[in-house]
Simulated assay, not measured.
Amino acid sequence: MDLSLVRVFVSIYEARGITAAAARLFVTPPAVSQALTKLRQQLDDPLFERVGRTMEPTHAAHALYPELRGALLTIDRAVDGLHGFDPAESDRHLRIALSELGEIGWLPAILRAVRARAPRMRLEVVPAHPDHLPEQLSRGSIDLAITPAALPAAFESTVIKRQGYGVAMSADNPLARGRLTRERYAGAAHLRVSGDSGIGPLDAALARAGIALTPRVVVHRIAALPVALAGDPELVATVPDTIAEGWAATWPLTVQPLPFAMDPVSVRLYRRHSTQHSAALDWFSATVTRAISGSSGQFSVIHGDG
């Protein structure tokens, strides 16, 4: 089989569309359609069937994909190893998905690490919406994603941080004095960030503890938390403890331990499925992992006047 046909198959499988696959391969959609016709003839299977706006794989395509993708990775890495990947000369456009907290805390370290070795590389940060990440990684529209959300096991991932949680509140909040019991916590006025990527593990821990919460206030940005908590002596927010402790250094806030059991949340770095530019992806992934693992984050940049 022509190697270019294998690339077309893998690209259609991952992108779930002719046009998106063509964009990946830097060819026209008619060229991809012609290649798919050849594949169907050679393999005697339709391989992909249109369902709405997407091309869904057949059973045969699902069976072929892992082997063909693995073969492409082996070939591409062998070629990359022969020619070498030089980040200093690369002008690739790489995309990473980060939450608001990720942008605040880790982006400075990522930028320093990438730009120190690859000053010509273009880096784009996109919002990390957990519901969108599997499709984005599958289609190759993003290269890396950092999130505590649990994505399908098919995606290659690395744990880069383990994060505990605590309860942040104003120093004037009555709950700041004495032990925070489960009952006092459940009866408090809770503040929550909508779309918080770490909310899934927290909700699971609350459910195991038999605690049902109805937020009194919902905000859209994590940066609103310290000012809102400092300004209202009744509100509490359950947030990563190290971040809350950083805020407490400049805001009139305090942090109480959780009154229920919750394992530290694993923050993972996920890689895209696509086989293209594997050497650049390997370098980018390793560089980001080292940058974050070696950084405590700059979350305290959201600071008070004190």
Rank of each mutant, 00 (worst) to 15 (best):
D2I: 13
S4Y: 10
S4A: 10
F9S: 00
F9M: 00
A15H: 07
R16C: 12
A22S: 10
F26P: 00
V27C: 13
T28V: 09
S33W: 11
A35C: 09
L36T: 02
L39V: 06
L43K: 05
D44K: 14
D45M: 09
R50L: 03
R53K: 05
T54C: 07
M55Y: 14
E56K: 12
H59E: 15
A60Y: 11
E67D: 14
L73W: 08
L73T: 04
G81D: 04
L82G: 03
P87H: 01
D91R: 13
H93W: 04
L94E: 01
L94F: 01
R95K: 14
L98E: 02
W106G: 11
L107H: 06
L107G: 07
P108S: 05
A118G: 02
R120I: 00
R122A: 03
V125S: 14
V126L: 06
A128P: 00
Q136D: 14
R139L: 14
I142N: 03
I142K: 07
D143C: 08
A145T: 08
A145H: 03
A145C: 06
I146M: 13
A149L: 13
P152T: 00
A153P: 04
A153T: 12
F155T: 07
S157Q: 13
I160T: 06
G166L: 10
V167Y: 03
S170W: 02
N173K: 05
P174F: 08
A176E: 10
R182K: 12
A189P: 00
H190T: 01
R192E: 02
S194Y: 04
R208Y: 02
A209F: 03
G210I: 01
I211M: 06
A212K: 05
H220M: 12
A224M: 13
V227G: 14
A228G: 10
G231R: 11
D232T: 10
A237T: 12
V239E: 12
V239Y: 05
I243A: 12
A244H: 02
E245D: 14
W247A: 11
A248Y: 00
A249S: 06
P252Q: 09
L253D: 02
V265M: 08
V265H: 08
L269S: 02
L269E: 01
Y270N: 02
H273N: 15
S278D: 09
S285Q: 15
R290V: 15
I292Q: 06
S293R: 12
S293V: 15
S295Q: 11
S296V: 15
S300W: 11
V301D: 06
G304N: 04
